[in-house]
Design a protein around this nucleic acid. Sequence first.
DNA 1: GTCTATAGCTAGATAGAC
DNA 2: GTCTATCTAGCTATAGAC
Lengths: 176, 176
Amino acid sequence: MVALAKVFRAKGYEGTSLAELSEVTGLKKASLYHRFPKGKEAMATSVFNYIGDWVQANVFAALADENNTPEVRLKNGLNHIATFYDGGRESCIFRAFSMETGLHLFEKNISAGMNEWISVFTRIGVALGQGPESAKANAVQTLIDIQGSLIVSKGLNDTDVFEQTLHNIEHRYLNK
Amino acid sequence: MVALAKVFRAKGYEGTSLAELSEVTGLKKASLYHRFPKGKEAMATSVFNYIGDWVQANVFAALADENNTPEVRLKNGLNHIATFYDGGRESCIFRAFSMETGLHLFEKNISAGMNEWISVFTRIGVALGQGPESAKANAVQTLIDIQGSLIVSKGLNDTDVFEQTLHNIEHRYLNK
DNA sequence: GTCTATAGCTAGATAGAC
DNA sequence: GTCTATCTAGCTATAGAC
């Protein structure tokens, strides 16, 4: 599943072929269809859910872990984000599935997923003393920062842009 | 050319087919090949240049127009940006051409294009009294804001995110 | 559950008439 | 300069042996 995810994230829904998924998994196409009878769309859905589970179990769990102070939770969450995007080298599944064809298939998954990110970051903002409205606005800005910096990092072939953005996010939350 | 651009922006390089380009232009595939003997890649390159020219003639020209104060130039430039992205409904060509296949073909165009955006926005920051370093950082953040807000607007199907981001950019430059 | 083989289609691209 | 017709290669998907 991790191999499927890597291809879909890098190539996007439209740019991913079953031939390549067969290569990276070592399974022939017919075997992929045995595991995913509904074909490419089902493979993509599984990848989307797999990634969602990983983010939930790592990023969101760290941000919500009540054993730590909000400051530590934020730092841990951002570290998981850095790992997840390999320091800016990996693309986001939201982006990979949101050109027109993919968007039509996954629009509900994407909007639900983005709203989760916003919700979790709103909560950490509130935990850090922000009012609910500005916490929400900051959460939306955080999502924009992550998505935008991934695009710009790719376009400039410069992972510093992504790393710097994660620092900026942290500073904004901690009023540094 | 504007019809080609609309498809490439919406579907991405990989997701755009010659059949669809034929439909939207009213030209048969053979006629498209008469105009672009080097095929789909040449069509995409032309679209990229066409869009670059439009941005140069409108967004960048407005931002650099010495007949106006920096404040007015900024406002005019942002208005052209709003038009260009149809208030957040249209995608950016950088994004449309930067999944793995397209990125490999267009990486130089994309990084050059992004650097132009950064350069132009750095200059408007300097004109508004920012130091060169913070003007550069603000320009990078502006590009991130635009790219990120387009993704989030699409994902949430909410153009307010994009519109709000343009306001935020303006406020950051004008210290409101 | 994995394989070979292949169906049926669409992709990008070309030849040649007009 | 636009067209019809067609090519080859690739695509998603399926049938059926093992």
